[in-house]
Nucleic acid binder design. Structure first.
Length: 661
RNA sequence: GGGGACGUAGUUCAGUUGGCUAGAACGCUGCCCUGUCACGGCAGAGGUCGCGGGUUCGAGUCCCGUCGUCCCCGCCA
């Protein structure tokens, strides 16, 4: 196909901006062919760029050359059109540009396109897998263009707001060292220091604290973070944080900054005004009232402790106290199968049991009737605050949960049920932005697997001043100066006032079971820095992808990240991660994968060093066996192997590599 | 690491109790068409039923394994 050069063709208008007022203007538009309607003597092209669509028309009688070009056009061809804007005889009300069209005088075919695997339109039915394999085409679709535009605008607004508040944006290293606790690290091997690895940061935590020590007073960064953990719809292996830190800051000051910044970000997303200050709950209150540390407060259904009602029935039911209940408004008519589904949900959450009571105008129906003390159901209704037509659900504390750890929450199962039921019955109102600060997180949690205390936030979080003396004697009771920002039940981010004194930092490491030598080896630089006049400081990090996803009305972060990874942490388009070159591993990095043992070519003329690597294919299904040959002299080395395998060989300064399949 | 759902033309799907020479829609290709805008009409091409094994006279269908996608639990300071 004969293609045209761009030459000095210059765009005068974007596709989406032309209006009736432009009628008569000579314009040049450039874009992709969305659709072609060929009527023989007339061809209509819908031309698309990121701004929108405009109809182009060619007429065989009036302009045969342009018409011939249009005849060759197919979807997603890239074309330029010089022509005159004309009012249409019959406008198309579905199109912003529907009152006009561009009558083509010259049509430039700038590039052709293969038929795309899915149409480049707003609503498509293609699977996410197909979309991810051709992400560049998916991104061409208007919904993705809108979401990334939204992301740009919000990000820009956050940057501006922070700049106005005196924050400096400062970059911190990606090639750094592993921090303790927390998620698994992604590692990057060092060529210059064989056997040594950088860790990609899970967050810039230590660096931002060092920037406070360095006197920058207010720092922020919109920064990528890396965590090698299993993924969810709201978790990507690399994700973006709005990270900030302030010297001499109290939690209230951090909250005020974030509240202002969020107002600006949401305004940039054309959202309604957000009321500040955001409500606050302590961690203990959140668990007691909602059974989670990230409550969705857009709906009620708060938890009620109804242990008193179950006191006498405890043995008969073989349950542990406390028992918590919640009221599902208007759900007394719930069917047997619905209630069974709720019970299955509780079971899946490792809950002990689910009891229910249907409140009607005249009575309360429940299997508990004979088990509870007389008038027990009425008591339950009164405590729970249920009205006729409502359904009461009650879940006892799980005995293992209660026995395992004295401070373990007892409401998480019913908290999960609260959310599940509300989603199921569509009781969550749309269009609300319920921000919430959750404060006073416990400083430590007991880890039964590691048999030690671990930081519930991170080891640099300051204990609450009044709990300081319990640090060693009763670590589980120590509250921290850590806080979370929650929006509509999503954890948007966590922050804390940090430890700024070396002595306290060392006490924390001790409680965590980190020996002094170990602490010095891993954070010597940081502990030393603390000793040089560290100001009190605190900050927070917000998940930018989550903020954008909520603003875009999406539940998956993949929808607001240009090139996201799958739940298995793969990039289906680039096919990453991929096997490295064996020579790169051995020669540059001196990393020897499992099952690669060096041997020597037995040909006395050759004596090349040879490595064979076959660890990556599934040993259960090897391909045909093939001989292993020296890559220099062709001499057969050892026994034949099941394919595929990789052979690397070195003779003097030369390296060779071959994959045998 | 565990549980669940899914995998059949380019795409989205249908495919009964195992009988298939595997269908539909959209898309694609060719021809016709001067006012279309989900244009229309006619004709046509297009399949390793994810992959590997097994049961069977016979497997898209049943069994085992494996790979991949999605959701959830564990995990994620």
């Amino acid at each position: 196909m004969q293609l045209d050069p761009l030459g000095d063709l210059k765009r005068t208008h974007t596709c989406g901006e032309l209006r009736a007022g432009d009628a008569g203007a000579r314009v040049t538009v450039l874009g992709w062919v969305q659709r072609r309607r060929d009527l023989g003597q007339l061809i209509f092209l819908d031309l698309r760029d990121r701004s929108g669509l405009v109809q182009v028309v060619t007429n065989k009688e009036k302009n045969a050359a342009a018409h011939a070009r249009a005849d060759q056009c197919r979807p997603e061809f890239v074309v330029g059109v010089e022509g005159t804007v004309a009012r249409r005889e019959k406008a198309n009300p579905n199109l912003e540009t529907g009152e006009i069209e561009v009558a083509a005088e010259r049509l430039y075919l700038l590039n052709e396109a293969r038929t795309p695997p899915f149409p480049i339109e707003g609503e498509i039915t293609a699977s996410e897998e197909t979309r991810l394999r051709h992400r560049y085409l998916d991104l061409r679709r208007p919904p993705l263009q809108r979401k990334l535009r939204l992301r740009h605008r919000v990000t820009l607004a956050l940057r501006r707001a922070l700049d106005e508040q005196g924050f400096y944006e400062i970059e911190t290293p990606f090639l750094t060292r592993s921090t303790p606790e927390g998620a698994r690290d992604y590692l990057a091997p060092s060529r210059v220091h064989p056997g040594h690895f950088y860790a990609l940061p899970q967050s810039p935590q230590l660096f931002k604290q060092l920037l406070m020590i360095a006197g920058f007073d207010r720092y922020f960064q919109i920064v990528r973070c890396f965590r090698d953990e299993d993924l969810r719809a709201d978790r990507q292996p690399e994700f973006t944080q709005l990270d900030l830190e302030m010297a001499f800051a109290t939690p209230d000051q951090v909250f005020a900054v974030i509240e202002g910044v969020m107002q600006r970000g949401f305004a940039a997303a054309d959202q309604q005004h957000i009321e500040t200050p955001f409500p606050r709950l302590t961690h203990a209150q959140a668990l007691a009232r909602y059974g989670t540390d990230k409550p969705d407060t857009r709906f009620g259904m708060e938890l009620v402790d109804v242990s008193a009602v179950f006191e006498t029935a405890r043995q008969a039911l073989r349950i542990e106290l406390p028992v918590h209940a919640l009221v599902v408004p208007g759900a007394a008519s719930a069917s047997r199968s619905q209630l069974d589904a709720f019970a299955d949900f509780v079971k899946a959450q490792k809950g002990r049991a689910l009891y229910h009571a249907k409140v009607t105008d005249t009575s309360i129906e429940s299997a508990l009737e004979k088990t509870l003390a007389s008038r027990g159901l009425e008591w339950l209704q009164e405590l729970a605050g249920a009205r006729p037509g409502d359904l009461i659900l009650a879940v006892p504390s799980d005995p293992a949960q209660a026995a395992g750890e004295p401070h373990a929450p007892t409401t998480t199962v019913i908290g999960a049920l609260r959310l599940h039921v509300a989603q199921q019955r569509k009781l969550i109102p749309e269009g609300k932005w319920n921000f919430l600060w959750v404060t006073e997180f416990p400083l430590f949690e007991w880890s039964p697997t590691e048999n030690r205390w671990v930081s519930s936030h991170h080891p640099f979080t300051s204990p609450a001043d009044e709990d300081m003396e319990k640090l060693e004697s009763d670590p589980g009771k120590v509250r921290s100066k850590a806080y979370d920002l929650v929006l509509n039940g999503w954890e948007l981010g966590s922050g804390s006032v940090r430890i700024h004194r070396q002595d306290i930092q060392q006490r924390i490491f001790r409680v965590l079971g980190l020996s002094e030598a170990e602490a010095r080896e891993r954070f010597g630089f940081f502990l030393e820095a603390l000793a040089y006049g560290t100001p009190p400081h605190g900050g927070i990090a917000l998940g930018l992808d989550r903020i954008i996803a909520l603003l875009a009305g999406e539940t998956s972060l993949r929808e607001v990240i240009a090139f996201p990874k799958t739940a298995q942490a793969q990039d289906l388009m680039a096919d990453a991660p991929a096997l490295p070159s064996l020579v790169q591993l051995i020669k540059e990095l001196q990393i020897f994968p499992r099952d690669t043992l060096p041997s020597r070519c037995e040909n006395t003329q050759c004596t090349a060093e040879i490595w064979i690597w076959q660890a990556f294919f599934h040993p259960k299904y090897p391909g045909p066996t093939k001989p292993v040959k020296c890559l220099f002299c062709g001499n057969v080395v050892g026994k034949p192997l099941g394919t595929p395998f990789v052979v690397a060989a070195q003779r003097e300064q030369e390296w060779r590599e071959e994959t045998v399949t």
